[in-house]
Amino acid sequence: MSTSAPRSVVSELRARIARLEGRAAHQRAVLPFGLAAIDRILPEGGLLRGALHEVAGGGNGAVNGAAAALFAAGVAARSGGKVLWCVTQPDLFAPALAQAGLAPGRIVYVECGDEKALLACFEEGLRHPELGAVVAEVSRLSMTASRRLQLAAEASGTLGLAVRRWRRQTEAADFGMPTAAMTRWRVSALPSAPLPVPGVGRPRWLLELIRSRAGECADFVVEACDDQGRLALPSSLADGQDAKDVGRCRASA
């Protein structure tokens, strides 16, 4: 009996396994935050590069998306390489992104006419492995669309950041719908730390890890991104005070 057919099947299976293993290794490339309180909560010790991640603003920030955009800018700044940023509303403030570590020379802006065109540009950008990150300000994100984005990110190893932004507060309920994103974050502005002299201190955020695939959810009080895209713990927390507020875990949805 001929064994050529079984051998060809085995060879094909081995080749397929090798491709899958290569992709899995590609996925394991991680971008850590550099803060143990956050990195130890994430299963891989940071954000997976070849994956889709969601960010939204909390409270009134769900509409203007300022804190969420700055958080995404800080992550993109630390990713290295060029960053593709897709928008439908041309109101990004470049100096603010630069203060979060993302210099104007690293960003390529794409202004899209509607959400459908934006998702198409988002997916196409994620297919390019030479980009450090692709950021897109999206209102609606279905499971089907997010799955396509996740697969595109997995294939290229490019970091995808979906900044959820809505025109009305009532639309923010869409953030509760399931998607294929690896992590889901909510960023809310907090009062800055009081200074001994008149002035405004470094902005603070309540950073909520709403969902982490195969991981826990948690809340963090952090100081906003510096000019290198790095977060920091408030001095009282870094010194060991109020430690219960750092990385407070909660049940996963």
Rank of each mutant, 00 (worst) to 15 (best):
E115S: 04
V135A: 08
D219G: 05
A172P: 02
S188K: 08
A51C: 06
P43R: 03
P194W: 05
R202P: 12
R168E: 15
R164W: 13
E44I: 00
A72R: 00
V138G: 06
G240I: 04
T179L: 06
V87F: 09
D174F: 09
A251N: 02
G201K: 00
K82N: 11
P32V: 11
G113W: 04
H53G: 04
A162C: 14
T144R: 15
A193D: 15
G160F: 00
D174E: 15
G240E: 12
L35A: 06
F71E: 09
L20Y: 08
S8G: 02
L119C: 03
L149I: 09
A173E: 14
G176Y: 05
G247L: 05
L42T: 03
A68Y: 04
E124C: 01
S146M: 00
R147F: 08
P196N: 13
G57S: 09
G247I: 03
R147A: 05
P129H: 00
S156L: 07
L92M: 13
V134T: 10
P90S: 02
A218T: 01
L118S: 12
G101T: 10
F122Q: 11
A73I: 13
A103P: 02
A153C: 03
C217Y: 10
G22P: 04
V246K: 00
Y109V: 03
V187H: 00
A155I: 04
E44V: 04
G157K: 11
L47Y: 14
C217M: 08
R14N: 07
